[in-house]
Design a protein around this nucleic acid. Structure first.
Lengths: 251, 251
DNA sequence: TCGAATTTGTGCGTATGTATC
DNA sequence: GGATACATACGCACAAATTCG
């Protein structure tokens, strides 16, 4: 049996006093210098102890001001659903349910499919696609980025070539595809957790390598099984939770 | 303008020599002591410099052996599926499809539900639950952690109180619940991307705050709508992708 | 097989910078 | 502006892991 390190002793002592109710959310905690004096060690040990609690999300530190007990209010999470019935305007509707104002910016251009995109769309590399870049905002703050690709072979010669122009703008993939008689059914989603790239971090207002939820979403034509749209969606890890499946009703 | 800190000077010097090709993947780099002598500082500064490069993923450190240039090999991704038909022994079967040997360790104990768990299970705080901690290994390397909770009110008085003991060990939630006549249907999953806690990082062999995929999975009794099992699953972000939905067949 | 040398990891103290009040 | 408080940088001592003769 070895003695636990002093900084861990102090951290666990504080943890117990916090969860025990001696300190409540918002309370100011002892300074690192006080902590060191109380335990007969140098201030750096107290700072190390607080670092543990900050990492655990129990405490927040404010430079020059002190350490405070973190409230239990979960940073309001926006929810992204995977629905059996694909709905229209998925993003705006989703954030509206959270009480925020959802808007987005977009930019479309024709391009040729690279190897990865072609693979996902089941077409040959170099075939023409319509690429659209989205930035989604909740209350004017960027919270989500997306890039979508649709084969021109599917949408060409129709009113919906440009996803966000004309009479069918902003209604979502499922509804737009219905216009040309395509039933897309439920999307297939591949979900990863990774660090934000520098560009994503800048766009989302987070630090590079901060965790993001990266979703690769593909819609298929239910009748033919052919992919009709694929997209890369990137969301701030601290603000989004993706929900799959539905809670059964209780009789 | 301020002078950059010595540890950063050393780190950038090394970074340039690595990307410049002086060191190639697998090469052993100077020890922290050498680095300190070369730059006229203490070894801890060299160690700090390496910490930067390790965090950037450019270098790996081996305790007692040295620092090495990291290869660019992208780690093969294991896949986790969300299936319409809940299968038995989900983990072992999943990794077997990837050509790895899946095993797990576990530890069960009775406990009382805390506020969050009670909420998720639809029971009162303090009611008894069976808590089981899992560590999943692929080829003996930990790749996934899980903690599950089942209300004793559901499993009590049956052969399946202990999830991993007796004749029904290791068969997964869905199959075990069938034994007592409960149809759990499809789980509801809430997926987040966040940084690994210190404990998770140690268990998974990754750096603290490296991205992980955190899944909150709950099974419901289809007949009554009551939750029968909930679990927190944590996976290495660089090794797992969660797939939801199935690709339609092409006629 | 074993032990000494080498190397990285951890813990902690001190000095200094910077933000807050 | 002064006092207080946290953040960063660095040096040192010791522990743990590895390597090699």
């Amino acid at each position: 049996m070895v003695d636990p390190a002093p900084y861990l002793v102090i951290a666990e002592d504080l943890r117990g006093r916090i969860v025990g109710g001696e300190f409540t959310p918002g309370d100011r905690l002892p300074s690192v210098a006080e902590l060191g004096r109380d335990h007969g060690v140098s201030p750096s040990v107290g700072a190390r102890a607080y670092a543990v609690l900050v990492e655990d999300g129990l405490v927040i530190s404010r430079h020059g001001a002190g350490h405070y007990v973190r409230g239990t209010e979960s940073p309001e999470l926006l929810v992204r659903r995977h629905r059996a019935q694909p709905e229209d305007s998925p993003f705006a509707q989703g954030v509206a349910e959270q009480g925020a104002a959802g808007t987005w910016r977009h930019e479309s251009a024709t391009a040729t499919a690279d190897a990865d995109t072609a693979e996902r769309l089941g077409i040959g590399p170099g075939e023409p696609v319509m690429r659209t870049e989205y930035v989604y905002l909740a209350d004017d703050v960027p919270v989500q980025l997306a890039t979508s690709w649709e084969p021109i072979a599917v949408t060409g010669q129709s009113m919906i070539v440009l996803p966000e122009a004309g009479p069918h703008a902003g209604i979502g993939v499922a509804a737009r595809m219905r216009v040309i008689g395509v039933d897309v059914g439920e999307a297939v989603e591949r979900v990863r957790s990774r660090g934000a790239t520098r560009a994503e971090a800048t766009a989302l207002g987070i630090n590079p390598s901060a965790p993001v939820l990266a979703v690769e979403r593909t819609y298929y034509d239910q009748a033919t099984g052919r992919p009709v749209e694929t997209a890369d969606v990137v969301m701030r890890g601290d603000r989004w939770v993706a929900v799959y499946g539905t809670v059964p009703a209780r009789p």
